[in-house]
Amino acid sequence: MTQSVNHHPSISLLELYCDGSLNAEVALLVATHLDYCPHCQQLRHDIETDLGAQLAASTPASQDLHNADWLEMMNSIVATPQLPFTAVAPAQSVEQLINIGGYQFELPRSLRRVASKRSKWLSMGGIATARLPSGEPHHASLLFIDKHTDVPLHTHQGLEMTLVLAGEMVDENGHYVPGDLIINSPDDTHKPRNISDEPCLCLSVLSAPLQFKEGLTRWLNPLQRFFY
């Protein structure tokens, strides 16, 4: 069964992504959404076309470089050999498939290189998480939720952004399929659950530690570290 993506980044978020001003972790989340979403791919194309047209229509700074300096730069460039067509794409170590919880998932293009640099999986119950290389104040990780498994109820101090990569999940606000982007603000308390018969894999980006609100888990500090 294929279901189409229903939860998209806003145009403002896409614009920040296209002009390169999002931080790397959130940009990775948007890039991964694009891997699933032809609609937003078109918008990306449109925004980049607009930005390119703006660059072409812009005016140089009134204090421009001297001709001689520009010439020197240009001459050093044209003295460089052009790359043969076949050598242009850099070879990268990539990982297309990922194994966790006894399942195998195919990774979208944008995560293939980054996922090969993930930390070890940490597992707890039917949930597992592996950190992707990321820096303060954002943490990016892969989140595995086994079938019929709940993620403990939690709030967070910063933004929590989740992108479904495989399987499906639900929370109080909706039902999410691969490509769906879920953004929760610090005010949201929510409880993601996988109620399906298939395992679920997500990309998660957090901007601050989570606080758990429910029962025992509230006191389990290690759990917080686990998610953050």
Binding site: Y17, A24, E25, A27, L28, A31, L34, D35, P38, H39, Q41, Q42, H45, P90, Q92, R109, S110, L111, R113, V114, K117, P133, S134, G135
Partner: peptide, 25 residues
């Protein structure tokens, strides 16, 4: 900018912006 933060190899522009190889919608 990433290089300046010594994080160039973590997430690079190549990961984030596929070279327009999406099918035209």
């Amino acid at each position: 900018l990433r290089k300046k933060q010594s994080r160039k190899d973590d997430i690079s522009a190549d990961d984030l912006w596929a070279d327009g190889d999406y099918p035209e919608a």
